[in-house]
């Protein structure tokens, strides 16, 4: 059996915010939640997306840090910025391909999800994965994920021409080998003309929305 790993399955997220609350319990950033839970398009969809740090193999946040304040542990976990070094420039916040680091203005420091290092370093599961009722955030073995989930876990991403490998996996269909963002299609430049407003009973008909063609961008 291989070691425990972190898996994200966006399709399972029910937007309950348990992860957001539980994240605050982490000892390394007590009282401050580091996880992001995006409501993708609140008016038209119930879709929500949790985003933890993906713990890149070569973290871009660390590469762009002028203070050399972001370090990885030997087991590949990218830590929050070192308190004595971080100068609060927000380079990491703006450069992270996953939009993860948070700049805390009051303490003039960047903080981020650190894989609940106080827990995972002693064999426990991260807080968010522990409380996630639908296991959209799962901390288990790759064999167990393969046995219980559709699709397969991957950890290769393409942003523009930049290829990023991560420690955290995401679930995708069997044939997919990487997640490639189509930046042109996703930008507002590619946005189609706004559809006429739907009647209220149609706006929140989730079943009908799921049957529609995917809409990129907004």
């Amino acid at each position: 059996m291989s070691e425990l790993a972190f898996f994200i399955d966006h399709s399972r997220c029910i937007g309950c915010r348990s992860c957001v609350q539980a994240c605050e319990e982490c000892d390394t950033h007590k009282g401050v939640s580091m996880i992001h839970l995006e409501t993708v398009e609140r008016a038209d969809s119930v879709q929500t997306a949790p985003q933890v740090c993906m713990h890149c193999v070569e973290p871009i946040c660390a590469r762009v840090c002028p203070a050399d304040a972001i370090k990885q542990t030997p087991d590949g976990v990218t830590q929050s910025s070192l308190k004595p070094r971080c100068i609060g420039c927000s380079n990491c916040v703006l450069a992270c391909p996953f939009g993860v680091p948070k700049y805390q203005a009051a303490i003039d420091q960047m903080m981020k999800c650190d894989y609940c290092y106080d827990r995972t370093s002693v064999g426990k599961r991260p807080m968010c994965a522990t409380v996630c009722p639908s296991q959209a955030l799962a901390f288990t073995t790759i064999e167990e994920i393969g046995r219980t989930r559709r699709g397969r876990p991957i950890r290769r991403w393409v942003f523009g021409d930049e290829v990023v490998e991560t420690k955290v996996y995401v679930m995708v269909p069997e044939a997919v080998e990487e997640v490639r963002l189509d930046l042109v299609a996703l930008s507002s430049k590619a946005e189609p003309a706004p559809a006429p407003p739907r009647a209220p009973h149609e706006r929140f008909d989730v079943a009908a929305l799921l049957e529609e063609e995917p809409v990129h961008g907004r």
């Binding site: 992001h36 398009e41 997306a49 992270c96 996953f98 939009g99 996703l186």
Partner: peptide, 21 residues
Amino acid sequence: GAHYQEFCPACRRKMLAITQD
């Protein structure tokens, strides 16, 4: 036609979700 640095962090997270969807 695009540069990833021109997207805000919140939109990056949404774009990841939309792409996977």
